[in-house]
């Protein structure tokens, strides 16, 4: 048994998700990502099951593991009660711990996620915070979102929110003592180290690509090489 496989087995999600695959392909048949991307969850499990170090390392550095949408539709359908989605979560976690994620275009996007969702969790106590959802980054949010952004405080007041206010209510300002507790939880449980690992590996990759870290973030957030889809050449 190889070292990388051993590291995967240490993750309880891997233990929960990987029982005994018989390669029937039901997961691939139900998978929304397999329909859109060059992605075959059956093959991912097959590769992991080989316990082949080189093949697992290639997988950890690949685009493949970043195609899953974590909808977990595969969990319902697997006749052996495997959960490919959980195996993917374990693979992504290990890929980031080892710094392999920067070797793929989709993996490099982790920095953009860390600097948006990841930052908002600790700054605001929410995964999503309305003043940060800009029209520039979210044109698909529509003309209605532009109107909301232009009138954010009044619209939230009209609709019963307590935007950035004291006490209970929607989008209330999370009390500083709660944010402090959140930060300490991240520090104690390895969340802060994980964020730092994403930053450090990304910084090295940015240098390798000749980009400043800020340029790199914008680049990974917006760039799609057009080679990921099933129909793309």
């Amino acid at each position: 048994m190889g070292k990388l496989y051993d590291m995967l087995v240490e993750d309880v999600r891997f233990q929960e998700g990987m029982k005994s695959c018989m390669n029937c392909g039901t997961c691939t048949a139900i998978c929304p990502a397999a329909e859109f991307y060059r992605y075959d969850p059956r093959q991912v499990i097959d590769t992991v099951q080989t316990k082949d170090e080189e093949a697992i390392e290639d997988l950890l550095k690949s685009e493949t593991i970043w195609y899953c949408g974590e909808c977990m539709s595969c969990v319902t359908r697997c006749p052996r009660k495997n959960a490919v989605g959980l195996v993917i979560v374990a693979l992504r976690s290990l890929s980031q711990k080892l710094g392999y994620f920067v070797e793929s275009e989709k993996g490099r996007q982790q920095l953009a996620l860390k600097r948006t969702i990841g930052a908002w969790i600790l700054e605001h106590g929410y995964c999503v915070y309305p003043r940060k959802i800009t029209v520039e980054n979210h044109p698909e949010a529509g003309t209605i979102w532009k109107w909301e952004q232009d009138n954010l405080d009044l619209i939230h007041k009209r609709l019963g929110s307590n935007l950035d206010g004291e006490g209970n209510g929607g989008l209330r300002r999370i009390p500083q003592e709660s944010l402090d507790e959140l930060q300490r939880i991240f520090d104690v449980t390895g969340g802060s180290d994980f964020y730092n690992q994403i930053e450090e590996a990304s910084k090295k990759k940015a240098e390798e690509m000749g980009l400043s870290l800020d340029e790199y973030v914008k680049f990974v957030y917006t760039t799609n090489n057009g080679l990921h889809g099933r129909d793309e050449e």
């Binding site: 992504r92 976690s93 990841g118 969790i121 106590g125 929410y126 995964c127 999370i174 959140l182 390895g190």
Partner: peptide, 16 residues
């Protein structure tokens, strides 16, 4: 606060 679920399923927040 947030449960951090979107961060978890974006794979930037560890399970622990």
């Amino acid at each position: 606060t947030t449960c951090s679920g979107i961060g978890y399923h974006s794979d930037i927040v560890p399970m622990e």
